Computed example of a mutant assay.
Amino acid sequence: MLAFVKLTIFTVLALASGVVAQPPPCLRTYEVKAGDFCDKISVEQGVSTYQLAAVNAGIVNALCTNLWVGQIICLAREGLDCSPVIKVVMLDTCESIATAAGITFERLLANNPNLNADCSNLYPDEVLCVEPPVTS
């Protein structure tokens, strides 16, 4: 909670002073190559579709149509780097993916906020985070 309070105070002060708060540093980067698109990069680099979009918010558009060859994009930021991931194949369901990964359906949804509650927006070639919950 203290980190959140500090971040909030920093954000308020930054906005009041006209300085834009920066996201956490990028931990891993990728240089876009000819023929790349977001799901292809996600599969090859082991990054969930959601994570790739989240760490590049404001840089890569929602449809991932604004990539260019040579562009450096972020793959992971501190606090947003999920492992392992799985590529969705035809006939996969959220239930089958969760079972195969040994996690609950609820955990799969929590790991992948881009999925809707009934998982009806799941599609082949999407990359999902199947990270198990932290245990103590």
Results as ranks from 00 to 15, higher is better:
C64V: 01
G35V: 11
R107Q: 15
V19W: 12
C38T: 00
P133F: 09
C119S: 06
P133Y: 13
A21L: 14
D125Q: 13
N114A: 03
G58S: 06
E126I: 04
C26R: 02
T8V: 15
Y30Q: 12
E106S: 07
S17L: 12
V88S: 03
L63H: 03
A101N: 07
A98L: 02
E31I: 15
Q71G: 09
V127K: 00
Q22M: 14
T65C: 09
R77S: 03
F105L: 13
G70K: 09
L122D: 06
C26F: 07
T11V: 13
I86M: 02
K87C: 06
F105A: 07
N66S: 08
I59N: 02
T65A: 08
A62Y: 05
L80P: 03
A3T: 12
A101R: 06
A98D: 00
E31V: 15
K40E: 04
Q71F: 08
C74P: 05
V55I: 11
V85S: 01
S96I: 14
P24L: 04
E126A: 11
N116F: 05
Y30V: 12
M1C: 09
Q45L: 10
A34D: 14
K87I: 05
E44T: 11
L80N: 11
L109P: 03
C38L: 01
E44F: 12
T29M: 15
L115V: 01
L108H: 02
A117H: 04
R107A: 06
G79T: 11
F105K: 07
